[in-house]
Design a protein around this nucleic acid. Structure first.
Lengths: 293, 293
DNA sequence: TTATTCATTCTATTTTTTAGAATGAAACAT
DNA sequence: ATGTTTCATTCTAAAAAATAGAATGAATAA
């Protein structure tokens, strides 16, 4: 079966990285003979000449160069495995609860969660989808570790995380979509607006900046899109949520005379940083990084 | 850095595979204490409990189960690396020369070559594209190790490899494409046929089953398609080569009264099997397998 | 030339791995 | 119940492997 050892790989790599047996030996705090022995044994176990001498200079053979690539990869994988193992022992958090506003873009969130559970494979992830102040409510009630919401918190730590563009949309067959001229607020007031209900139990703010005479209130972005695609009204919705429908033509972005696009800042909220476990810290790092651009 | 060893992984895996320390010890021809020691050391080096006892039954912990997956993967990768290494030493062929008829489907060929060079990473691959007897000529002249051609060989070994369908095609704007009724051979004779020139220097067979009065002869399928798309004639061409153009409508399959589709068998030809090196053997295995369906 | 910097080998020492015997606990058979 | 078997587990001594240190010789640099 497997004849080579990880230590041999390390030494082989070291010889290449530091340009010689003696240099490698010094850098990895081993004797030259140890390094030489290990590499020599690796060579005979693999049945491959890894190095050849050109004068006094050590040069990788073609085989050696190729095996080095594979071995580097293996070493990297081993390191990952052991790192994961080191984060698996009892004592660390076993769950990560995230309250996230529905208007927050899902891609970076899911990517971040995927990366975190790569690092902490035994973690249980809970994603609590909320609207408006619902995310922060859950955080304050201790039902979530982190919230991604459009509001900052007074009690806890908040930081800017990203900006979400809201566009005014209506169904392709809607009267507003057929208007030639830019729309005014008055035009909008004459039609039904679909509004998102705040999911917090305490407060009652609603998404929707216009005081339309008729309004329907729904609990989910998906429901809002459903209604609008059926031509039952218009709404402000996150661009990323309606992009595919704008693409296939079932929704139209309305041409407002002033401010057809609005932006909302989203914030990353969490309780005291000192008390955070490694899982939450890792998640924070990931989501910060992934929402950078 | 890396603290665990491959031997430890093997023993860990063995304990799981064979359901206990003692059984594992017996199966891998080690003493129970060796196995136990190795796994115990692995546990403390990773800082993870791999097993727990339920009565006298050994059960993987959740961490153990996850690490086993990663370790299995690692063991598999190590094996691959060592297998590749074992095929890399001097003495084995360093090149693989394949003469292949242009009408032969490229996908399985390229896939087979990709798999072979995965196994023998230092190999130099030469693909010699030929028409008709050209492939076998190269094989007989010793300029190729394997040929994929529409002919069998008398001197060397041949085996069926796959069947290629030829369809009669013309450009979308061509007279023949516009015919309502099925075409007859007489209809075809009235138009220009594009024929493929045999790439062998000795022989002079040409692809094209019909004795058209006018004929143009070209050296490559790509040229033939070019001409036909421009409406300059018709030709018998491999279905897989013209499929994309039939799809986009720039070529039309002609509706012949009898035999609008013809099939040609392709053969895998090579010299004496005893003398084949491991690289050629591997390629033969791959191409056989990939053309099975 | 001389000195230096290497790879490489040899030998002794230290460390690690292994086997064998022994112990105790749980499951099974009678 | 009772004895037997099948385990994991530990201990100790032997075997094997890794390591260091000194030494050699070859190639380069001063």
């Amino acid at each position: 079966m497997a004849r080579s050892t990880i230590t041999q790989w390390h030494m082989f790599k070291a010889v290449v990285d530091f340009g010689g047996f003696n240099q490698a030996a010094e850098r990895i705090h081993k004797s030259p003979s140890s390094v030489h022995n290990a590499v020599q044994k690796l060579e005979q176990q693999l049945g491959v000449d890894l190095f050849k001498m050109q004068g006094r200079k050590l040069v990788l053979t073609a085989s050696g160069a190729h095996l080095l690539r594979r071995i580097n990869y293996l070493l990297h994988e081993v390191e990952r495995m052991e790192h994961v193992a080191s984060n698996m022992q009892v004592g660390i958090e076993s769950s990560l609860r995230i309250a996230v506003d529905e208007a927050f873009p899902k891609e970076p969130l899911y990517q971040a969660l995927s990366n975190v559970s790569e690092e902490f494979p035994l973690i249980r992830v809970e994603v609590l989808e909320t609207i408006l102040s619902g995310a922060d409510e859950l955080l304050e009630q201790g039902k979530a570790d982190v919230s991604l919401s459009p509001f900052t918190l007074s009690e806890n730590l908040s930081e800017d995380i990203c900006t979400v563009k809201f566009v005014l949309v209506a169904g392709a067959g809607h009267h507003l979509s057929k208007a030639k001229l830019p729309l005014t607020l008055e035009d909008l007031k004459a039609h039904r607006q679909i509004v998102l209900r705040d999911s917090a139990l305490n407060k009652q703010t609603n998404y929707g900046w216009l005081g339309a005479d008729q309004r329907w209130t729904v609990s989910h972005i998906a429901s809002s899109i459903e209604l609008i695609r059926r031509g039952l009204g218009y709404a402000w919705l996150p661009q990323h949520a309606v992009a595919p429908f704008l693409e296939d033509g079932s929704l139209k972005a309305l041409n407002l005379s002033r401010g057809a696009v609005r932006s909302t800042n989203f914030y990353l909220n969490f309780t005291d940083g000192e008390l955070l476990g490694p899982v939450t810290r890792s998640f924070l790092g990931q989501i910060r990084y992934l929402t950078l651009n």
